[in-house]
């Protein structure tokens, strides 16, 4: 910017001097010009005399690996959609392979037409977007297509489809050399396909790796995306997994997941008899209540009163009451 300003200032001075053409500038004395107008004017004089040139810089626009298609007629079945997606995948695979890249992520965008009955002229477009992470980045069209097909098998929409787009996130292919005795996934593609099928069946929030949450809420966990690498490093050798450590563990608790709903008979506000699908009997000994509560600042606030009870048959059971509902958490070994 500074250089540009300087050029403009020099040009203004040159115009005042009556220099209006490159020929007039080239005819000026180089040394005299430099002494009066500085180094930028010298560079301009050199360019006017053909003694220097500016090299053009080639700037490539970032390559976008996206294919899209707008259907002439709205479609209501999966076949034309799958046909288009296969074509997209073939084109993307060719483009990626040509520059030695593979796809690590696919993004599928489907646009619906939501024509209103009362206002047929106004067509409101709605979209659906879904990102597919590919565990082992690849350009294998069959594999990628199977992944999309599995997902779309369970895909339902009330509105007809007007457009579809597929974009790929490229990455350099991984080059790994495994040790002789190292175990690895025998078929990462099959794993990804299985995961995709399970996700389609169960929903994305119900598949992954459970991670224990750092909270006082017993057995609280969240699901994180399944990762093969994470499995390898989950339990460092020689260490007990964190999930198994408790501050005062003297007996292991076998948890029922989810906790079993129970009905409890009370005596002086303390549990006296428990009855559930898994456990039933008279309570002969009890410890508690252990009061726990948290997340009071949000709608997810919770509170529970836990009891450790011993049944007539000798079983040690942990149960809790929350919002008036009793549940059996598990049995101590």
């Amino acid at each position: 910017m500074e250089g540009q300003m300087q050029v403009q200032e020099i040009m203004a001075i040159l115009h005042k001097w009556g220099i209006h053409t490159l020929g007039q500038l080239a005819a000026l004395d180089k040394e005299q010009l430099g002494a009066r107008l500085g180094p930028e004017a010298l560079r301009m004089w050199e360019r006017a005399n053909g003694q220097s040139n500016r090299v053009l810089k080639l700037i490539r626009p970032p390559e976008s690996f996206e294919e899209s298609f707008e259907f002439e007629h709205e479609i209501a079945t999966a076949e034309p959609l799958l046909f288009m997606l296969r074509r997209f995948l073939e084109q993307l695979a060719v483009r990626l392979s040509a520059i030695y890249l593979v796809a690590k992520e696919l993004t599928l965008r489907i646009t619906f037409s939501n024509s209103r009955q009362d206002e047929p002229a106004v067509a409101e477009k709605q979209g659906y977007e879904r990102v597919f992470k590919i565990p082992q980045p690849t350009n294998d069209v069959d594999l990628l297509f199977r992944m999309l097909q599995t997902h779309l098998e369970n895909f339902r929409s009330e509105d007809p489809i007007v457009a579809v787009a597929l974009s790929a996130e490229p990455i350099k292919p991984a080059r790994e050399q495994f040790g002789l005795f190292e175990t690895t996934l025998r078929n990462p593609q099959q794993l990804s396909e299985t995961l995709a099928r399970l996700t389609a069946l169960l929903g994305s929030d119900r598949i992954g790796t459970p991670i224990l949450e750092e909270t006082h809420r017993p057995d609280a966990f969240r699901m994180e995306a399944f990762s093969w690498a994470a499995v390898e490093s989950a339990v460092p050798s020689g260490e007990t997994p964190h999930a198994l450590r408790t501050a005062h563990a003297t007996a292991a608790l076998r948890r029922f997941r989810p906790a079993v709903t129970a009905s409890i008979l009370r005596d002086e506000n303390k549990p006296a008899h428990v009855c559930s699908a898994e456990i039933q009997g008279k309570i002969v000994e009890k410890r508690g209540p252990y009061l726990l509560s948290g997340t009071w600042w949000s709608e997810k606030s919770w509170a529970r009163a836990e009891w450790d009870v011993q049944l007539g048959a000798g079983e040690l059971v942990r149960c809790h009451e929350s919002e008036g509902i009793w549940k059996v958490d598990g049995v101590y070994d």
């Binding site: 949450e213 750092e214 909270t215 006082h216 009061l291 726990l292 509560s293 948290g294 600042w297």
Partner: peptide
């Protein structure tokens, strides 16, 4: 902050 304080917070209001 509260969302990530986890077990730093108190277990109950006793």
């Amino acid at each position: 902050h509260l969302d990530i304080a986890g077990k730093l917070l108190t277990q109950n209001a006793e």
